[in-house]
Design a protein around this nucleic acid. Structure first.
Lengths: 333, 333
DNA sequence: TCAATAATTGACAACGTTGTCTCTTTCGTA
DNA sequence: TACGAAAGAGACAACGTTGTCAATTATTGA
């Protein structure tokens, strides 16, 4: 493990000066600061949180900003952030209220050294502007691919949705229904695109009656599934943009006496707890949300310490989890 | 905050001796040990985990033993334990394999300083015997009230079930179905008793056709709910022993076109994530499982440090969370 | 009883960081 | 050029614990 002292030796300054640089304290010549940061990056210095906690009376604070209709998403997020901050020796402030004044008020506080942006804030231009302006390092979770400000962390939603759709196609399905997510989230858009990709690739014509609106909640899933399953020529498979809506689809199927997966395959997205609870278990895409949040804190720490070193975005791998809710299509006999 | 040094001063020994006592190291005269422990208890000494982590190369280890059909229960448990251990400066070893050899092998390892027992192990006599024998401190979670070995932590399941049943009665329900939990768990027994208590108190005769077997899983809930709702004179309310089974009941009701809560009230137990996801949201009993586990680590630390001080069991409060799945009974018009 | 040995206890360093205070350098101004 | 002020950098203590090794006390055997 490399310590402040190692960095100090290599940089040819006292360890106290290094400490000052790493905590963004004033009173260090710009040239010295840069030099120290370079060495710290080179040696891949990581602060020791125990020492920091032991000695410091107040800890530098990181803000976690964002909200989501899915309860489990929010909690996983918060959990990961807490763990990360514990490990790195930061305080955490969580803010779910998303109006401009609240956020800017929070961020203007002296001791905020960085921010993690969860959806939908990770795509909110005014937040990015404000942070850039204030020169506060930040990490964006599940952010839009297009914008290239700040670091992003997340999975490739488009590829994941494509994979799942392809999986259903491989099982022999052609009439595949799709339930969209909340239109305020960019992931929703990306998942539709992935679905269309796979359909196009396989040369299956897209029936727009099979693509219905949803907004990530269970209730919206009920409505959407009703729309899909009430059709005379109903789909043989349904891919919902998250697990809550997939579970709702399961309930609707149950109501109509449609057996899953024999007469209908259902797939979800997220691998949230509900996917394992319902029967049959949901085939879904696993994305480790809490891991993502924890990783975000790590990256943020890198940015705080190493300034502009390491400019790569992190793309976590997704995983298709196959459970009992999908099955090969029964041949029309 | 009181430190080792405070304890040392008051006990009239060096702080190193105190450290030795608190870590159960050998080479301390029995009389000295007792004296130090008394003083530590008196001053309510709590170790500083940061200092411990900073200095120690190896940390004392605590074992978490148990398993449960409910995934969310297990994970909340583990989470709480991890947090507690982080805070108190312990390592955590989790073991879900419950055969005798595995457990005894784990516990015989040198560095295990204490154990947390989750159901069903918290009521397993041979484990208790073994731990008593080895003189390893332990805490039992959701343990049977009868046995009085070791510390117990949990809610009053009987009272909680009674409260929920009473809640349904207060809403005007008389034909209240009950879905039991897995028979291998003592909490299952206690919840039935609570149900019967409330029915008796209100002078409602218990119809044994309305009490059906379940085993905590979603699937078993589907089966049980079918049994209850297929009856000609079906219940107007159903109380399931956990949320997974309550959610399953909701699905069955949906299938039969029985509207919840208009024609049927449904209540669960645990306030697990699914209770907030399904529609309508489940009225349920909140018990903070992860808090329980974290508290268990605290108590364990007390026992490790203060030996036999503080002999009281901890009974956490439960809370009836009212959501949309229960409603006053419609008058028969 | 007295030395030899074992058991018990203590003194002090070390872990990696931040806080406080002092010393040095730089810069602007007379 | 010289002086004073301000900015920059360093020395050292401190946080609460455990590790190492030395010092003290108790116990044993002849």
């Amino acid at each position: 493990m490399t310590t402040i002292i190692d960095v100090a030796k290599k940089a040819g300054v006292s360890f106290k000066t290094v400490s000052r640089v790493l905590n963004g304290e004033a009173g260090v010549r710009e040239k010295t600061r840069e030099n120290v940061l370079n060495v710290a990056t080179e040696l891949n210095y990581q602060p020791n949180s125990s020492a920091r906690n032991l000695r410091a009376k107040t800890l530098p604070t990181v803000a976690l900003l964002g909200d989501n209709p899915s309860r489990s998403f929010v909690e996983a997020m918060r959990l990961g952030a807490i763990m990360g901050c514990k490990r790195m020796g930061y305080n955490l402030k969580v803010e779910n209220l998303l109006n401009k004044d609240t956020i800017e008020g929070l961020l203007s506080q002296e001791d905020i050294v960085g921010a993690v942006l969860a959806p939908p804030l990770s795509n909110s231009q005014w937040v990015l502007d404000y942070l850039n302006n204030q020169n506060i390092p930040y990490v964006r979770i599940c952010a839009e691919q297009v914008s290239n400000e700040g670091h992003k962390i997340g999975i490739d939603d488009r590829a994941a949705a494509r994979d799942m759709t392809q999986h259903l196609i491989d099982l022999g399905h052609k009439r595949i229904g799709f339930i969209k997510g909340h239109s305020g989230y960019d992931v929703s858009r990306r998942r539709v695109v992935g679905y269309k990709d796979a359909m196009d690739n396989s040369g299956i014509e897209i029936d727009h009656n099979l693509i219905v609106e949803g907004e990530f909640s269970y209730v919206s899933g009920l409505v959407a599934a009703e729309k899909l399953l009430a059709q005379p020529d109903r789909p043989t498979a349904i891919f919902a943009s998250n697990d809550d809506m997939a579970a709702a689809t399961l309930a609707v199927a149950y109501k109509y006496g449609i057996s899953v997966p024999d007469q209908l395959s259902i797939a979800g997205f997220d691998d949230s707890p509900i996917a394992k609870i319902v029967h049959p278990g949901l085939t879904t895409i696993r994305q480790a949300v809490s891991v993502m949040a924890e990783k975000a804190i790590d990256i943020l720490a890198q940015k705080i310490i190493h300034k502009d070193g390491l400019l790569e975005d992190v793309e976590l791998l997704h995983e298709l989890v196959e459970r009992a809710s999908t099955a090969p299509m029964k041949s029309v006999s």
